[in-house]
């Protein structure tokens, strides 16, 4: 069974009399440890799909199984808890908390668990080492470059060892070199650490870093070529 298993997934938003359906009857399988790139024109439903996979949003209908669990059935409260342990979300604009240092930002997911301070310190140190930012631990986001901020954001997304990472245009705001180092990092997380990664991108070069690329158009996957 695939790590992510999506069957006939539909998401529509109704506002008053009008209703938008960004995703319609979509099916998709992603095996454990795969680094998947999602491409598609603006408004094609990429972020919507990512949010559903990450348990940020709930589907209108269909089945959405992550690691054998149908998260479409979870309540808001259960979803929040599920996110806290199983997902790391990486945003285009990093979304670091400006008043907290890199170290404290990375600590955020750990504070939801029951770890001691020393245990947290070890995990944060390991995450910082992985993204190669040990020397910036006590800097605030404003004191970091965009690439460094994104690496802190990745450390924050992985520090609690979730099996699933979702990234919405993680290199969209970065220069080529910074983007490349982020992509290398993601590749490493998939191949060496077994993370399943779904990444939305507009950049064909970024997509090349992934194991597989899917194209979304008007809420449908238009082709599904194995690479």
């Amino acid at each position: 069974m695939a790590f992510i298993s999506i069957r006939s997934l539909t998401k529509s938003y109704t506002k008053g009399k009008t209703s938008v359906t960004p995703l319609e009857n979509l099916s998709l399988d992603v095996p454990q440890g795969e680094f998947l790139a999602l491409m598609g024109p603006s408004g094609s439903g990429k972020t919507t799909l990512l949010n559903l996979i990450a348990g940020i949003d709930t589907p209108s209908s269909g089945q959405l199984e992550i690691n054998g669990r149908n998260i479409a059935d979870l309540s808001q409260r259960q979803l929040t808890q599920w996110r806290a342990t199983h997902v790391g979300y990486i945003f285009q604009l990093y979304h670091l908390v400006p008043v907290l240092s890199a170290y404290e930002n990375i600590e955020l997911p750990l504070l939801l668990g029951k770890l001691t301070k020393a245990e947290r310190r070890m995990k944060i140190q390991a995450a910082l080492d992985l993204v190669d930012l040990s020397d910036r631990a006590h800097h605030r986001p404003a004191e970091l470059s965009g690439g460094q901020e994104q690496r802190v954001a990745i450390a924050r997304a992985i520090v609690h060892h979730p099996e699933l990472l979702v990234a919405d245009e993680p290199t969209g705001d970065l220069d080529r070199d910074s983007a490349d180092s982020i992509l290398t990092l993601l590749q490493q997380l998939a191949t060496e650490h077994g993370k399943t990664i779904v990444m939305v991108t507009h950049d064909p070069k970024a997509a090349q870093a992934a194991h597989r690329t899917l194209h979304l158009e008007k809420g449908q996957l238009i082709n599904n070529p194995r690479q």
């Binding site: 940020i56 409260r77 929040t80 996110r83 806290a84 997911p109 939801l112 924050r156």
Partner: peptide, 9 residues
Amino acid sequence: ATLQSIGYT
């Protein structure tokens, strides 16, 4: 919203 996505209620 980011903090909620991390798992804070």
